[in-house]
Design a protein around this nucleic acid. Structure first.
Lengths: 154, 154
DNA sequence: TAATAATATCTTGAATACGAGATTAATTTA
DNA sequence: TAAATTAATCTCGTATTCAAGATATTATTA
């Protein structure tokens, strides 16, 4: 009696729900995989994302970092504090605009990311070994389209 | 100097990282969309997932629910408590095995899910309007493969 | 110039999640 | 049957996140 509630739905809607579930699972699996790798470096996903952005972009205003890695401002303070305590980044007030504070890697932070990042990238790459380059490219295109359609005005 | 750190990497690895980012974003966008819809019914994603499972499977041991919707046992207690307080589900001890406790929808819970679920399904479906049925099918297959490769033995 | 609006960061409180350990019950072993 | 093991749930402490509000600074406007 319960089982066929799903079967009574429109087939297209069923397919969308199926995709939703598969997307959730695949995403969670990959995130767990990445998180597990980060644990080797004593970093959680938010911390790693901030470190990675600073590693690739250099000194950046805290707010810009939050916008890029999709973290709320309160979260940014928390994450930056933790990374400062670890000695990986430092705050540097902007001289032109004293509302702004830059975050940037310390020498220690640079050193750590230089050691860590290639390993982490390799781990991510390894987690996707089930797909060919062509399949990955297809996935990238399809996911981009999906992401856009879910964002744009209802 | 910072920008081309990425460019120095192997192209295949770069592609995998790109896919990782696109997957994260698409997933987050869809989850945010779904969460926004659930808010109309005063339910968060974990609560909705539990309700949905009970709606489709009927009375189920709490641990099994946790396994299916990927929540830790401590979290299950918390979520079940909240749904019980809302009057949507109830606990029922198993008579054969007194370690086991079933959760099941109350009449109110049944009523609410019958009203809510089709609307939620329609919202999910709508969020994916940017893809054709064929594209969705491709995505489903590719994501399944990806999810498996990230799970299987390192 | 004074008042207002906008911007960036930080503070605080609530919600959510996990993990370790406690509790209770069932099952297996000696 | 007693002890040990396994299993299911719950309790408690901690971590992470967001949202709303507070504070400080800059930009705009009257």
């Amino acid at each position: 009696m319960h089982e066929n509630r799903l079967e009574l739905m429109d087939a297209d809607v069923q397919q969308s729900l199926k995709l939703f579930v598969v997307l959730s699972r695949a995403s969670k699996t990959l995130m767990d995989y990445a998180q597990h790798d980060m644990k080797h470096y004593q970093l959680n996903p938010s911390e790693f994302a901030v470190m990675e952005m600073l590693y690739h972009k250099g000194s950046t205003p805290i707010q810009q970092i939050g916008g890029k890695v999709l973290l709320a401002s309160g979260t940014m303070t928390y994450v930056v504090d933790k990374l400062v305590n670890k000695g990986y980044i430092k705050r540097r007030p902007c001289e032109q605009d004293r509302r702004v504070i830059y975050a940037e890697l310390t020498e220690e932070g640079e050193r750590v990311m230089t050691a860590i990042f290639p390993k982490h990238a390799a781990a991510i790459h390894e987690s996707m070994r089930g797909l060919t380059a062509d399949e990955k490219q297809q996935l990238i295109e399809l996911l981009k389209t999906l992401g856009q359609s879910a964002t744009s005005p209802e």
